[in-house]
Design a protein around this nucleic acid. Structure first.
Lengths: 354, 354
DNA sequence: TTTTTTTAGTTAAACGTTTAACCTATATTT
DNA sequence: AAATATAGGTTAAACGTTTAACTAAAAAAA
């Protein structure tokens, strides 16, 4: 064996990678035995297993994932599609998906749609082409046509949506209770004495923004505040949008005394507009954002916001995917997991402390 | 053919995926012909090509990437390792790497080290296991032991580092000129009339932070400013670190009149500390950050910073990788690409405008 | 007409695993 | 002692492509 080994040791210096065939040759056993030994199959003796593992180490053997994936029909790869990774929310969701899936031997391929429908379709094609075993996604703002997502389902590949989902699409979903979150915000602002509460929201067609808008309207009704159409604005919720829409609100004859913005980024823009116009926050106008991005705690005044439990969403999404891989029965009830969000009150809406 | 096709059309409803074998059966030709037709091989007639593509479409054929990757020995996957995706810098670099590589048929697998050496090693193992064709990485702060990176090189897999690299490691590198950037900052501060310039930097062992520190010291010398050791602080450069180290600087008997922080995040923390202590920025103390993260333009006062050309870095890194796949000759000179950074002057260091 | 060239394929092996089915020698049971 | 079980493997096919090497028929050249 030693002679055979030393012959193979030379191989280390060449480019060619070590395969189980090499190990089999060194030990003069079949490749099947090697494969089984590496997987601790019960039909291989301890002695052989030990020898195989030793040789594998010596030859610096690295299993060929492609080969086993092809044979087993499983790539052990999960695709993740997010609008962008550069928000703390998505970055944290991804981190937690990765953590849970890595433990089970899965790797993730992260792709960004940049909020573009076309890019999202490309991403889906790419992931299907790469033979991922499942897809976890949060939809782009633009997306209305669900054909591509249907395609995933049609192929029998588990699809789990989080945060940005769609009511029409019959898939697993993990998100927070947007409707209730709006209620919490409005209630808080009412408690602060606000009477004219505006909402800079996202577009109604997107499930989460629709829910936030409905929650906002129903909450106003509940607290006997009149619903004024000029106080409800739809937008893309970028920083620039927040600034622009806030300036529009400030032009109204009857200004709002509070603004609830459906995204922290837009809230940051709105805050800049308020500062530019020398309007005191929260005394003149109170401000609440959404998402609890770290910077909300760092700007002056700090911005009240809704914590979306990003870590929890990531973990649950991964778990739902794993449940598909474990259960043999194809028929499985869909998971619709709605987490309760938490309102974090900061300076921008707290008139008591100041 | 129609009869055969309709027989196969049923297959669409089953789980089994369509393969080139199915297409071959429908048209009664060999699978080799199908493979060639799909790749527009010159030895296949136009008629056959057309027929093959039509049937492929009808059967909803999707090439099995694993099979072709195994056969060709190329996974068409590139691994990307970054400390975290949630800064604009890394997110932008990644976006641009992806854009360039996608055009050439490559996909990327993004992994995060979370600045942990152990996680980084795990990431490398994972990527090697997944048979990536190359790795583009920015090292974790913690990393000193380069063994794992050597391993990549040893396997003959192209390794390209960006931003956080290492002088000792003989690999391709793309980054900005940190040394010069420090010079630009110091020069600017001197022009603003500052005479006691402090530096909250990263750890010297990391190449980029070392260069920034050296640049800072040499620039002081050049402008005949004394180098005071208590004005040079090493840290991890988190937001909290920035705040803490700034408070330390404020405790000095002889306070600085300007602080150059080696990261925007730490600069943000520093700014909070200054605000808490009611110190006017830039009048009492001027502040400059590093990285040109979007929030630097949005806080009050806005923070001057260094733009690192993230898009350019991403594109170049991808190009360097591609150069390995195209050139046959193994011997290739290493690329060390150093981009010139740009100082963006904002309120935090601009005494003229105020 | 015969030979050569071109066209349009076909055959079969290979990529590195996994796994169902089979086999043989030894140990155990009856 | 014969029958059965168990341990420890081996053989060969399969996963879905790609590709080098071969071939048959038709077209062009001689």
């Amino acid at each position: 064996m030693l002679k055979r080994l030393s012959k193979y040791i030379k191989k280390l210096n060449t480019k060619k990678k070590t395969t189980i065939k090499d190990i089999a040759n060194v030990l003069n056993i079949s490749i099947a035995a090697v494969s089984k030994a590496l997987h601790d199959d019960s039909r291989i003796s301890k002695k052989t297993k030990k020898a195989v593992k030793q040789v594998a180490k010596n030859l610096n053997y690295q299993p060929n994932h492609l080969a086993s994936a092809l044979r087993k029909g499983k790539s052990k790869l999960v695709g993740v599609i997010v609008p962008r990774t550069n928000s703390n929310f998505f970055s944290s969701v991804i981190e937690n998906i990765e953590e849970v899936l890595n433990k089970e031997g899965y790797n993730i391929i992260i792709t960004q749609s940049n909020e573009s429908f076309k890019k999202e379709c490309d991403n889906i094609n790419t992931l299907l082409f790469t033979q991922v075993d499942g897809i976890i996604a949060s939809m782009a703002n633009e997306t209305i046509d669900l054909e591509y997502f249907e395609k995933i389902k049609a192929k029998g590949i588990p699809l789990i949506l989080f945060d940005r989902g769609e009511n029409d699409l019959n898939v697993d979903y993990i998100g927070i209770n947007d409707y209730d979150s709006s209620h919490k915000i409005v209630e808080h602002l009412v408690n602060q004495g606000c009477k004219r509460i505006a909402h800079i929201g996202g577009f109604k067609r997107t499930r989460i923004y629709n829910n936030r808008i409905r929650g906002y309207m129903d909450a106003l009704k509940k607290h006997n505040l009149p619903l004024d159409n000029e106080l409800l604005i739809e937008s893309n919720l970028t920083i620039a949008d927040g600034k622009e829409k806030m300036l529009e609100l400030l032009k109204l004859k009857k200004r709002p005394d509070a603004v609830y913005v459906a995204s922290d980024y837009a809230a940051l823009g709105a805050l800049q507009a308020l500062k530019d116009k020398n309007i005191k926050v929260p005394q003149d106008i109170a401000l609440v954002g959404f998402g609890d991005e770290p910077f909300t705690a760092l700007v002056t005044p700090s911005i009240s916001s809704i914590n979306q439990h990003s870590a929890e969403i990531g973990k649950q999404a991964a778990q739902v995917f794993l449940s598909y891989t474990k259960v043999k029965s194809v028929k499985q009830t869909l998971n619709k997991i709605i987490l309760e969000a938490k309102l974090v009150i900061r300076e921008s809406s707290n008139t008591n402390i100041i």
